[in-house]
Design a protein around this nucleic acid. Sequence first.
DNA 1: TATTGTTATACTCTATAACTATA
DNA 2: TATAGTTATAGAGTATAACAATA
Lengths: 157, 157
Amino acid sequence: MNDVNAGNSIPGTVAYRLGVLGTIAADRFAAAIDPLDLKPKHVGLMAALDANTGASQQDLATRLGVVPSLIVSLADHLERLGAIRRERDATDRRRQTLALTDQGRQLLTTCEQAATEVDATLTARLTPHQLQSLQEALAILATDTLPKNPLPTPPNP
Amino acid sequence: MNDVNAGNSIPGTVAYRLGVLGTIAADRFAAAIDPLDLKPKHVGLMAALDANTGASQQDLATRLGVVPSLIVSLADHLERLGAIRRERDATDRRRQTLALTDQGRQLLTTCEQAATEVDATLTARLTPHQLQSLQEALAILATDTLPKNPLPTPPNP
DNA sequence: TATTGTTATACTCTATAACTATA
DNA sequence: TATAGTTATAGAGTATAACAATA
């Protein structure tokens, strides 16, 4: 009924809609965490540290699909906030292992709440069944197309 | 079984997954149309012209949620490619109406094929039922949260 | 010589602001 | 004076490349 843009037209494709909706979602999440002095990529780095402890900056760069110098600036910021610690590897003093601090874990929890709230407003109009289907499909796409765990792209503005 | 990142952890939220998958989708689509000398935002503008003919650049800027000067550069590029025409409004000579040319419509069709191919690889592992559920949910989110028709955000690289 | 982290630099994208022409 | 389009400029974000310390 309302499908001016259904069918094969560009705005009706999954790729296009994922692109647009992904921007919206990232935008709202970015706005929600802005008061915490965090960008989505900072949260992505913290989430990676939470899931997999004791990684070097190089490891993180390749796993997150970004360049090592970006990890440096993200880690610098998180370190200033007291969310992570840099620890020199004793056996190889070139390596620095990043670890979440208690404060960092706390911050991550706050970000989780923010993301959950964004989810709520974003999916408010879906039926429970539709929401479950969406989550299921997104989970498959996520685990399927993401052997690496790329960081979310923050909105350009 | 495979859900290291399920539950309420950040990577498991809809917002986060839409953000990451949206980046992937936009990235692949951008790669697919790169040989055509187009970026996602060019395609977004062409799609808007295809859906709603005879709009001025200001109209388009507000409808697409970008600044007028960005419409200028996008239109400049599309005009150089012969995909659109600029036509001065006879009654108000300040206004310029953008219109897709036949060549532009052709180009848009090629982009549609590219998007459809990206869709195919992106959703290859979904069952037909899951695919349908995903499309349904995305359609609802799209029509629900997008009173305006924002342009897709191209990947930063 | 190769690798880790860092710094310096450049590039892309987009917004803001100043400007021209029409109204 | 206000509006449509354009141009010039600036800012955010990220990559590339050069560098220092360690292996």
